[in-house]
């Protein structure tokens, strides 16, 4: 039975309207439904609530009770917006979650902006990840990071444009990513221990 959940995160601080627009489109809904998703959770970021609500009202969904509690979503009570579209797909919107890890844990696919924090959140929990570059940010390394992670085949990367985005979505259902290496490195640990515990580095002069 299809019970897949998609988690979309725009990052907590800077809104990413292009990504929200791509996700809340009829074409995306159709695709997700075909791939067996029944739930989409969108963390749209602080200060974007009114815009998100307005956009949600344009997709002709039916407002419904959220299938996840505020505790599970890590938001304040009554903060989550929920709507069902195409009869079978539930869209949940939250401004900011304090329990992103728990949401990532229940997700089958994550789409995030290309911030290192969000990328690590998903990859450390071994979730397939599509990275969408917020290219309007100035002096930001999102494009470089996305390219680098894509080059190593840890993520599927795209710009916020329909063709690239849907291409990534398609790939996420047919291709496999490389597994992300563990953060623990014995050599680095040894380096720390040597530095901290070897008394020879105490100055003798």
């Amino acid at each position: 039975m299809a019970t897949k959940t998609l988690f979309v995160t725009c990052g907590a601080t800077v809104p990413f309207p292009e990504l929200v627009e791509l996700v809340l489109s009829q074409e995306c809904f159709e695709g997700l439904k075909n791939y067996g998703f029944i739930r989409v959770i969108v963390q749209f970021g602080r200060g974007y609530k009114d815009d998100f609500e307005r956009r949600l009202n344009t997709i002709h969904g039916i407002p419904q009770r959220c299938s996840l509690g505020d505790r599970e979503l890590g938001c304040c009570s009554g903060e989550s917006l929920s709507m069902s579209v195409l009869g079978a797909l539930e869209i949940i919107g939250i401004e900011y979650s304090t329990r992103v890890h728990d949401i990532v844990r229940i997700a089958d696919l994550v789409i995030s902006h290309a911030g290192t924090g969000s990328i690590l959140d998903s990859l450390r929990l071994e979730k397939p990840l599509i990275v969408c570059v917020n290219d309007r940010l100035m002096d930001n390394h999102q494009q470089q990071i996305a390219d680098k992670f894509q080059q190593k085949n840890y993520v599927w990367a795209c710009k916020p444009q329909p063709c690239e985005f849907y291409d990534c979505l398609r790939k996420s259902q047919s291709e496999q990513l490389n597994s992300f290496p563990q953060a623990h490195n014995v050599q680095f640990e040894n380096q720390l221990i040597k530095l901290a515990f070897t008394s020879s580095n105490v100055n003798t002069l």
Binding site: V186, N190, Q191, K194, F197
Partner: peptide, 26 residues
Amino acid sequence: GYSNGFDNQDGSLKVSLFEHKAKRPL
């Protein structure tokens, strides 16, 4: 000597020094 970036020989030994050295509180 320990920090000039050329002491990779002992670094390549994949043994943790943890059991031998890191016993005292840090």
